[in-house]
């Protein structure tokens, strides 16, 4: 009873917030609604007993990815009228995407309804973390490492694409600063009166 009620509450909030992500006028508010959607999804995960995934969702998406979204959106000087102008132009494309997503969800739902979802039953004795770890690092170890490699390549790619070598940049080299001795830094000069240090 309570679980069903909570489910409907979270699901309603998630759907409404997801709608508001698209509908909100201010992009910063859009990101806020996106965060609310993530939260509701995390709540749904907890209802299903997948508390590890829920916390991971909050930690990775809400705690890091959405913060970076917010960071970028706040920095941009966005002209709202300009964004709205392209709306009709991209509407057909968006509708096609929405239809494909809808179809996929119907298929998943149908598979679950007819009882061959392919999801194995979980052992209530084994904790979430243990269950995921024992599958991820044995049966799917190769795929897991593959994903890690893809992420590494993406990271290096991002650095290579954005890095520019500029001339005349003064960098602080801590090692050099520490290695500097008194002899290299200070010169003792005996100056005659009225002559100055010279060149």
């Amino acid at each position: 009873m309570l679980v069903t009620l909570t489910f409907y509450l979270l699901a309603a909030v998630a759907v409404m917030a997801a709608f508001m992500v698209v509908a909100a006028r201010n992009p910063v508010h859009s990101v806020m609604y996106l965060i609310l959607t993530f939260f509701s999804a995390a709540g749904l995960f907890i209802l299903m007993g997948a508390e590890f995934l829920a916390l991971l969702l909050i930690m990775v998406y809400v705690g890091a990815v959405a913060v970076l979204f917010l960071f970028v959106v706040m920095m941009l000087e966005v002209d709202f009228v300009e964004i709205k102008q392209g709306f009709l132009q991209y509407a057909p494309f968006g509708l096609v995407m929405a239809f494909i997503l809808f179809l996929e969800m119907v298929l998943v739902g149908a598979a679950y309804f007819f009882g061959d979802s392919g999801v194995p039953d979980t052992d209530p004795e084994v904790s979430n973390l243990e269950a995921i770890g024992s599958v991820l690092y044995t049966d799917y170890a190769l795929f897991f490492e593959g994903v890690g490699l893809v992420l590494l390549v993406a990271m290096i790619g991002a650095i290579v694409l954005t890095h520019r070598a500029r001339d005349g940049v003064r960098r602080q080299d801590v090692g050099r600063q520490v290695a500097r001795t008194r002899e290299a830094a200070i010169k003792k000069v005996d100056i005659e009166p009225g002559e100055g240090i010279g060149p």
């Binding site: 965060i35 508390e51 590890f52 916390l55 909050i58 930690m59 913060v67 917010l70 706040m74």
Partner: peptide
């Protein structure tokens, strides 16, 4: 809970929002 460490990390990563929203 048996993932207490993860919970603390998740909650403390949300603390940024108070500051970033307030500043904006």
């Amino acid at each position: 809970i048996n993932i207490g460490v993860l919970y603390v990390l998740a909650i403390s990563s949300l603390g940024v929002y108070g500051i970033i929203i307030g500043g904006w």
